[in-house]
Amino acid sequence: MKLKKYMTLGVEKFFWLCAILSLLALLLILGFLLKEGLPPLFSIGFKSFLLGQRWKPLEETFGIFPMIVATVTATAGAILLGGFIGLFTALFLAEVASPKAARLIRPLIQLLAGIPSVVFGFFGLVLIVPWIANRFGGPGNSLLATILILSVMILPTLASISETALRAVPQEYREGSLALGASPMETLFKVTLPAAKNGIIAAFVLGIGRAVGETMAVVLVCGNRPQIPQSLLDPIRPMTSTIAMEMSYSSGLHQEALFAIGVILLIFIVALNLSVNYILRGNKDL
């Protein structure tokens, strides 16, 4: 009898152990990335690292400002374009489409979400890059190509999370609005959409996280030139691409600098997650 009790207790402790694995893994990841990435940040200097214009590993000059600009502009473009299409798709699926049509379309969006990023990158490389080069001139590998690919990649995430948020809006809101004489579209944009605001903002923040962190698709279409883009057709090199391109042959301070870029990325992602957490907590109070 006593043995059985100890076994039960042991099994429960084991469940608990598995649960805290996530926390331990996160601490390990933070610990090791900071251990590798923080020292070079101090030895290079925060200011010359973050605001430096030139990235010349051979001369031990490590400035990532052009990469930060590249990441920010590509993400902003993708969130505007992909966000708009994704949000409207979500609105359609949640409010306009017949249940049957929605049931048909939803798996397609899931499939789009499941396509591996390297396939998106390859597709961009063989179709979008030559198209941009032919249509607008320039090398094709550009900020524009990056924005287009990232838009398509974040679109399904945005659409499905926004749809969930829209569906969570109580039916009475819609009925009340319609009963007051508002048209279906007025109800949708002035009542339902604002009511689902928090969930949709969270979807956008997650989309930003995805765009900032995306690597294998971007590295194939961005052109990989560490410069501040002057136009949509200029090649760029976001932070993630730099890590992916140079990690395999770098050593010494160069490799450390790549880890430092990783730390900057990590800080950005954790900040985004904290804000999603904050936004969603606000949602529960509603």
Partner: peptide
Amino acid sequence: SLLRFSIECLAGIPSILYGLFGFTF
């Protein structure tokens, strides 16, 4: 809540950072 937050964080970490971590660790 800390546990749940760490799960959310793990989900949000980009794969290239998993690559860097896996490489060093």
